[in-house]
């Protein structure tokens, strides 16, 4: 006997249309949601008047000018750059090495190693900041130093390294280890295997980890706020601005903060496309 064809609860066409509306609609809605505050900031940075409210009194770039005349903002820009560059280098190198270990090697302490290396990922940043602040305060009292640029960088590295680890780990996971055997068989020393085979093949992952690291550090607020002492970066500078009364200067700073992000994300996408 033949079983009846299963009867759908609505006809296939309606179902497909409904699914389409829901899916495409949700993507569109989420994208709008994500960009509302970003576009609001960008828009207000061009406000001519003194307050970031509508309607515009006029469109001008004067707040960008004010930004570069404001020494606090200039210092913040410089500090942000230093912290982000240094933290990116450390986090990417340490994270990539740890990713290779976590994915490729089977050894006694693999699980504790991976757990420890990735733990800060699921630790709220604010609490990480507080715990580290306590630590640096105690250490600072013992060894006589204050929190500042260096402690902020350490905090950023602790927080960002696990992200780099995860991103590179995906690349290592898809990496065929026999390629290293093949290189060795061709006569390559350990160093040459890394130079000619392992690193070039992991490079896309390491590169995206680097970009990710830079942007996480560049835009980071919590850790910098806790650990940088009196040193200001762009995000903490903006935060202090929100507290002391708004002016379109702060949207202008925010827009400046966006720029490297946009450039790097586009660059990363280009690279990936070229590689594919």
């Amino acid at each position: 006997m033949a079983y009846p064809t299963p009867t759908p609860w609505m006809n296939a066409k309606t179902e497909a249309q409904l699914a389409g509306v829901l899916l495409y609609g949700s993507v569109a809605a989420v994208l709008i949601f994500f960009y509302v505050p970003i576009f609001t900031l960008i828009a207000f940075s061009f406000q001519e008047g003194r307050y970031p409210t509508l309607p515009f009194e006029g469109v001008s770039l004067k707040w960008y000018g004010a930004l570069f005349e404001n020494s606090g903002a200039r210092d913040a820009l410089w500090n942000s750059t230093i912290i982000a560059v240094v933290a990116t280098v450390f986090a990417t190198v340490i994270g990539s090495a740890a990713a290779i270990v976590a994915v490729r090697y089977k050894f006694r302490f693999r699980l504790p190693f991976t757990g420890l290396s990735a733990a800060p990922l699921a630790f709220p940043q604010l609490l990480l900041g507080i715990v580290l602040l306590l630590w640096f305060s105690v250490l600072g009292r013992a060894f006589d130093f204050n929190t500042g640029l260096v402690t902020a960088i350490i905090g950023h590295v602790v927080y960002i390294t696990p992200f780099a680890l995860v991103i590179v780990a995906v690349q290592v996971f898809n990496f065929d280890a026999t390629l290293e055997d093949a290189a060795r068989d061709c006569g390559a020393t350990t160093f040459e295997v890394y130079r000619y085979v392992t690193l070039p093949l992991l490079w896309p992952g390491i590169f995206s980890a680097g970009i990710f690291a830079f942007l996480l550090s560049w835009g980071n607020f919590y850790l910098t706020y806790s650990l940088a002492g009196s040193t200001r970066t762009l995000p903490t500078f903006v935060f202090s601005g929100i507290a002391t009364g708004s002016s379109p200067l702060y949207p202008a700073i925010a827009t400046v903060v966006f720029i490297p992000g946009i450039l790097l994300v586009i660059l990363a996408d280009r690279m990936r496309r070229k590689a594919a």
């Binding site: 390629l179 055997d181 093949a182 068989d185 006569g187």
Partner: peptide, 20 residues
């Protein structure tokens, strides 16, 4: 003697050609 220094050469099952 490490693989690199042996007068042998291997053709791998999955070939292991360097994709880059």
């Amino acid at each position: 003697v490490p693989a690199a220094a042996r007068p042998t050469s291997m053709v791998f099952q999955k070939l292991a050609l360097f994709p880059h």
